[in-house]
């Protein structure tokens, strides 16, 4: 038998993804309304942001456009979570109804198989929103555009996205261990809204919390320093890809451990 290699997984992922998108397209009305809903969410959040910061030239040394940069960056970094990992929201229902076991009978990784099942199209709307915001802020801040910087940006975005994905993995997997885990998911989901603020506005204690316990500061703040504070980049910014991978891996282990734990109960 062939080894279950990366190309194999990529191929399966593509297959399932295309089918999922195809079947979503048969509910066109649903897709449009969800997308409009998503756009409204982002519009209102941007408007709130605009109204809050418009009157102030700078907050704690962060200019309006720099804040906007953080905002756009965080939206983009959260797009993979929204598009690719949305099935975590259904995990609870699968587990409580006992249907989760179907993911354990296939000759592929359980987490991969579960996550691959859903692609959330409306997340692309959010991504486009983030991209436009980021480009606008980038332009206003007159930041340079070089090949190296684009590569850095892509790398920073990819690793930043891992943090919120990992947080949601942890939150979703709590359903393997406890009843009533819906609140955990909803609460964890709110953290993404806080990612867009510079961490310097918090007291040292909460800076520590948001860096090492609930690491939302890595979603926008630390990676953005790479572009906004080029002469004073802290160590944590350089380490953030590594921390992101480790954190994601830990969340994956927690998830898989829960899955194994869960299938052990019940007849």
């Amino acid at each position: 038998m062939k080894t279950l290699s990366l190309p194999y997984y990529a191929h399966i992922y593509k297959m399932i993804l295309i089918q999922d998108i195809k079947s979503k397209m048969s509910y066109r009305a649903d897709f449009f309304i969800s997308t409009i809903g998503m756009i409204f969410t982002n519009l209102s959040s941007l408007a709130a942001f605009y109204i809050t910061f418009l009157n102030f030239p700078s907050v704690m040394g962060w200019s309006y456009h720099e804040m906007l940069f953080l905002y756009g960056f965080s939206l983009l970094a959260l797009t993979p979570l929204q598009c690719l990992f949305d099935n975590n929201w259904s995990l609870r229902n699968f587990v409580y109804r006992g249907d989760f076991i179907k993911y354990c009978f296939r000759p592929i990784n359980t987490y991969f198989y579960f996550i691959s099942e859903v692609f959330d199209l409306k997340g692309l709307g959010q991504g486009a929103f983030g991209l436009v915001t980021l480009i606008y802020a980038w332009n206003k801040l007159q930041l340079p555009v070089t090949f190296l910087i684009i590569v850095q940006l892509l790398l920073a975005l990819t690793t930043a996205s891992l943090f919120m994905i990992a947080i949601m993995n942890f939150a979703a997997a709590t359903c393997f261990y406890i009843i009533n885990s819906g609140y955990v998911m909803v609460t964890a989901n709110k953290f993404r809204d806080y990612a867009k603020y510079p961490i310097t506005i918090f007291e040292p204690f909460f800076r520590f919390i948001f860096t090492f316990i609930i690491p939302i500061a890595f979603i926008a703040y630390y990676p953005s320093l790479l572009f906004l504070r080029t002469n004073n980049i802290p160590l944590l910014t350089w380490l953030s890809p590594l921390i992101g991978v480790v954190f994601f891996y830990l969340s994956y282990l927690f998830w898989m451990h829960g899955a194994r734990n869960y299938t052990g109960t019940g007849s």
């Binding site: 038998m1 062939k2 194999y8 191929h11 399966i12 297959m15 399932i16 089918q19 999922d20 195809k22 079947s23 979503k24 006992g98 249907d99 076991i101 179907k102 009978f105 296939r106 000759p107 592929i108 099942e117």
Partner: peptide, 27 residues
């Protein structure tokens, strides 16, 4: 494996599409 009434097929896909995915998963 067929486990009770819990379908292991993709809920929203036509059967033949599920088969095609399974074809690739099981190579």
């Amino acid at each position: 494996v067929v486990f009770g009434q819990r379908s292991q097929l993709w809920w929203s896909l036509p059967l033949i599409e599920s088969f095609k995915i399974l074809k690739d998963i099981y190579q």
